[in-house]
Nucleic acid binder design. Structure first.
Lengths: 416, 416
DNA sequence: CCACTTTCGCAACGCTGTTGCCAAAGTGCA
DNA sequence: TGCACTTTGGCAACAGCGTTGCGAAAGTGG
């Protein structure tokens, strides 16, 4: 089943909620299926609903313009299955990535594909009003060129912050942001819904939803290029891949496009060290939406001092090793933290990202992986160690994930 | 809302599922309300359903013998609300706690109250067949005296193990258990459903469901006595508190009985060191149901060797400190691990349990709390540090939690 | 004693997914 | 070419869900 009841407050379900849940479920399967599409009967099998129910639901989705028929599969002895696909242009969302020194804005369609993009330098320390004004200007400029209305704007920036209220805490290095109601300020300025989250959470969400070629097991490119359509931020929507409807791989076969990831940790090593946790397909934010404080995990009792005032934080150890050129040591330290996390949460996968990792991808993947393998060996786990990979998405991944802050709920992911 | 969709496999919802979900929700509220009961209108408010829907649902529950009317509240100017309560005797489950040197078996009613109990010495190293036979014998003896049929048997024992398949891994110190299909063995022997889980998870589940007086904020006894009815394993169910139906505190007021806990970590310090994690009201077990590996978290790079073969594990450091009588140091070490965990997951509460903690309750609560307070101070969190408490339930808590492995699903908690 | 408030069930209703049935659209063999 | 067969998928009737409308029941207060 698919229920989880929270505080018992307002978790009763009526028929309207049931309908939107099932519709979101179908929509999510359509999205996951991608260009290839998916037939009604497959939808029925995957959801557990009857074919008739799926027919009704997809009829509604088609009437709403969210889904469309896209060719048919090869027959297996009877009437061939009609393939349905998501209509990407049926909705758009803006993803806004406020980094320390630049701002990236992307416009994404329903599939999460980037339709337009802007990137300009921006000093996050220039003051709240100025930054909000600049960011809003970039969003407006992006939308003016596209001529579409959007569901809202997702904003990702370095934490810590309060996701539920959209209020910033003390952004490391920019104390003037403390307590600033970024969500309400931007929403008031732009007149559309705004959601704010940590950059690590946005990146993790983007990966969780798109699952960009990161198979949890085997497969996948060992390289780094990553997400679909890494080029052309122009108008022509959709990735460059196969354009036709009939694939030669036959009919059944569950070799479908990259399936979303269930549970993983995205570790971001850049100016600082943070984590985005995905558990059960959704971002885990915790009681006060402050989860993911990975960098100030202590892994060396009474170790060297950290900027946070504590001693032996993994961030301090890791950055210090990087600074003195000891990448292997930095990777080992990161691996210890990752292993602690994996042991505690039992996740499927560890993904590494951030500028520092990007500069030494192989060394970090190998170093972190070695620690996890050693830990798995000691525990005598049968099925081997948790895989370690470089996170897909690259520099634009955070902005894409920010757009998913608004897109994901349409597909039943997030918030709940 | 209350939906979370997992892998998209079989998570479509039909009307039957909807009904059982809402029924479970109401049942859970009835259970939480305890002896005092709860009125139909309160159920409607808390679930978000209309009063009519609640009337229909409660009518079904009453017809099934699961709920009953229990007096009425004081009038507020009109017809007084009829109070409903759970019928505890409508179902029972057995909780079996296999510890290293003894076995505890409890029979619990629907509310989780212990109706009967047995405890005998047992060597966990005596071999799988012998232990299964002994345990099964104890269960049968317990049931013979009670004369009730049970939903099943929940088994809790030291991990690691595979909860989903009910197969043990290498129980520390008892290598002969590796790979033993305990669930199927016991289920075959007893002829009732069996669920197996780690002792820490069972304890955490018991606390999560019963929420025994452990308010997340303030309140509560600072002492240790703990769970409801720590005495009399006889027949008289329920806590000793207010027995009447009309409470003088008026009508509305959400001062209801101990509400279940949303998210916390149960840290168990005994022969080893482990954790049970509760996130979103349910036990978090992870992808391979191995989550909670807290003890072999490394918090001292290249520290002293641990029995697991690694170095600097928190378990080794903590136990070594205890062995040399440095309880304060052990508490500090434990606190560092707890703070790492709290930062990573952003949970509401830390609960401490296990024999070692029980021997020095105040020192551990104070020591762990101090580390968390210091960490919160450094982060500049407004609303103070996460509270630290001694886990309720005492020695019998694990067995009670084991029974909840079967009871909790009735109330929409667990598995999902 | 009556007006008023509040609770709560019966009946009708709208909407959900399901079942029964049949047309449509292919394949495969004669 | 024609017919039997398989498979897809929509139409219609249906059972069952929570909701709405309404009235009886059961109190309080003047």
């Amino acid at each position: 089943m698919a229920y989880v009841n929270r505080t018992n407050a307002e978790s009763g379900v009526n028929l309207l909620a049931l309908r939107s849940h099932n519709a979101a479920l179908v929509l999510d399967l359509l999205r996951t299926a991608g260009e290839g599409g998916i037939s009604r009967l497959e939808l029925a099998e995957r959801t557990g609903l009857t074919p008739q129910a799926v027919s009704k639901i997809t009829a509604r989705l088609r009437a709403d313009g969210l889904a469309a028929e896209a060719g048919r599969r090869a027959s297996t002895g009877g009437k061939p299955r009609t393939v349905l696909r998501l209509v990407p242009e049926a909705g758009h969302a803006v993803g806004l990535h406020l980094d320390r020194d630049e701002v990236t804005v992307v416009l994404c369609d329903l599939t999460g594909a980037v339709v337009a993009e802007r990137r300009v330098p921006l000093d996050l320390g220039a003051g709240a009003e100025a930054v909000v004004e600049s960011a809003a200007g970039e969003v407006e400029a992006l939308l003016a060129g596209a001529g579409v209305s959007v569901l809202g704007v997702g904003v990702a920036l370095p934490g810590p912050l309060d996701h539920a209220r959209g209020v910033l805490h003390r952004v490391t290095g920019f104390p003037e942001w403390d307590g600033f109601p970024l969500r309400d300020a931007l929403a008031g300025r732009l007149g559309v819904p705004v959601v704010v989250d940590k950059d690590t959470n946005a990146a993790a969400l983007g990966i969780a939803v798109v699952g960009s070629g990161v198979g949890a097991l085997g497969g996948g490119a060992s390289g780094s290029s990553g997400s679909a359509g890494a080029s052309d931020p122009s108008g022509s929507a959709g990735p460059a891949g196969s354009s036709g409807a009939s694939d030669p791989s036959g009919s059944s076969g569950f070799s479908g496009p990259s399936s979303p990831l269930e549970s993983f940790a995205y570790l971001h090593l850049g100016t600082g060290l943070g984590a985005g946790l995905v558990i059960g397909g959704g971002v885990h934010r915790g009681a006060r939406t402050g989860a993911g404080e990975f960098g100030h995990q202590v892994i060396q009792l009474d170790g060297p001092p950290c900027g946070c005032g504590n001693r032996g934080c993994i961030e301090a150890l890791c950055l210090a090793a990087v600074d003195r050129g000891a990448v292997a040591e930095a990777a080992r330290v990161l691996g210890v933290g990752a292993a602690n996390l994996v042991g505690l949460l039992d996740i499927d996968l560890v993904l590494l990202g951030g500028r520092t990792v990007a500069a030494h991808e192989e060394a970090f993947v190998r170093g972190v992986g070695a620690v996890l393998e050693e830990r798995a060996r000691l525990e005598g786990v049968d099925d081997g160690a948790i895989p370690v990979r470089v996170a897909p998405g690259g520099a634009r991944g955070v902005a894409e994930g920010a757009a998913q802050l608004l897109l994901a709920p349409l597909f039943g992911r997030g918030e709940d």
